[in-house]
Amino acid sequence: MLPNRSRLSVLVFLLPPLLLYCVAVLFPIVQSMFLSFFSWNGISDMEFVGLANYVRMLTADDIFWRSFFNALGYLAICLVLQLGGALLVASLLTSMRRGRELIKTLYLLPAVISTVAIAFLFVRIYSIEPVGLLNQLLHWIGLGALERPWLSDINTVLTAVSAPEGWRFTGLYMLIIYAALLSVPQELEEAARLDGASRWQLFTKIRFPHIMPVWITTTIMATTYGLRGFDIPYLMTNGGPGQSSELLTTYMYKTAFSSTDFGYASTIAVFIVVECLVAVGLILFLLKRKADA
């Protein structure tokens, strides 16, 4: 439908980022798929093992499965904090008369702060000795019995390392959803109010269906980022105590650079890619099915 000159212009502008994407994303994926069929320590000659790495991963590696279920828990907590928090704050912003810019700036700040700084900040917040902010607050409000070493307790460590990741990106998704809410036609909302619609009905019947395409995109972004989460959990606990906060990404990293088993680490990397693709497919299927219902 575009004239030849326009098609050429589009091609010229798309080619550089497409080449960069192929070099930075597609090539490493293909290389990981290739290495997953070999046993290699990074120095000696590669030994072809076929599907042995995949069989080992799926049938004989308890740490892999522990990491997989930890990753699902980590993802669930991140999605609740990021998408739930973003939708709540964005909805509140649309009804605010003053202070919108300040609130948006405060919520967006964590997204531009170094992950190292965020990790060390939350390590201090969770600290038991010296007493961190969280335990101090529990003491002040009379809940001192709940004080604990949050990063050393196997029952709380996964939630503790998930919260900083959720807090970090809430502002980014809030901004996206807020922009989508501003695009909702005001005449539709006014007509619904005249018909006696409550605020809940206004949101569920008009606002949310209107922003559904943006919600799907945001959910995909949050899900893929959550499944690939690495830096904050690694910096805070390094997967410990035991494997209580071990994720597939941290396990893959340690397998490659601590155990120098690059073939098996590549197998885990391929699984993470497949996991992300399956998650995106499920999200598209479920949300589009709900939107069409």
Rank of each mutant, 00 (worst) to 15 (best):
F285K: 14
Y173Q: 12
I283E: 03
L26Q: 03
T105K: 06
A180N: 07
Y173H: 15
G42N: 05
P17I: 07
L83T: 02
G132Y: 10
A163W: 11
W40N: 05
V25C: 01
V278S: 00
K288L: 15
V49L: 04
I43P: 03
R66G: 10
H139C: 07
P213S: 03
F122E: 02
A256L: 06
T224E: 00
A179M: 08
E275F: 00
Q31T: 07
L182Q: 15
I43Q: 10
I272Y: 00
I118P: 01
S114T: 09
E129Q: 13
G226N: 05
D153N: 15
L175G: 08
D62N: 10
R289N: 11
P17W: 08
S162L: 03
L106G: 11
L181R: 06
F13L: 11
A86T: 02
T217W: 07
Y74N: 11
F48D: 07
L26H: 01
R228I: 00
V131I: 12
V55L: 08
A197W: 04
L286K: 03
T250W: 04
A145K: 12
L92M: 10
T255I: 01
Q201C: 06
H210M: 10
G171P: 08
L158Y: 04
P16V: 02
M221Y: 13
F208Y: 13
Q201R: 14
L88P: 12
L75T: 12
A163N: 02
L93V: 10
L188K: 14
M212L: 13
W150L: 04
G166E: 07
S114Q: 06
F285G: 05
G50Y: 11
F230R: 05
G42M: 06
G50P: 10
G85N: 04
Y234G: 01
F285N: 10
Y178L: 09
M174D: 06
M96A: 11
K104S: 13
C22V: 13
W215H: 08
Y54K: 05
W215I: 14
T237N: 03
T156P: 11
L109M: 13
E187L: 09
F122Y: 14
L51I: 15
I103A: 09
L87N: 05
I29R: 00
R289W: 11
G226F: 01
D231R: 07
T255N: 01
G229A: 15
F203M: 09
A256F: 01
L134D: 08
S152R: 09
V116D: 09
F120M: 11
I176L: 15
L182I: 08
A160S: 15
K205H: 10
W140H: 12
P149G: 12
P16M: 04
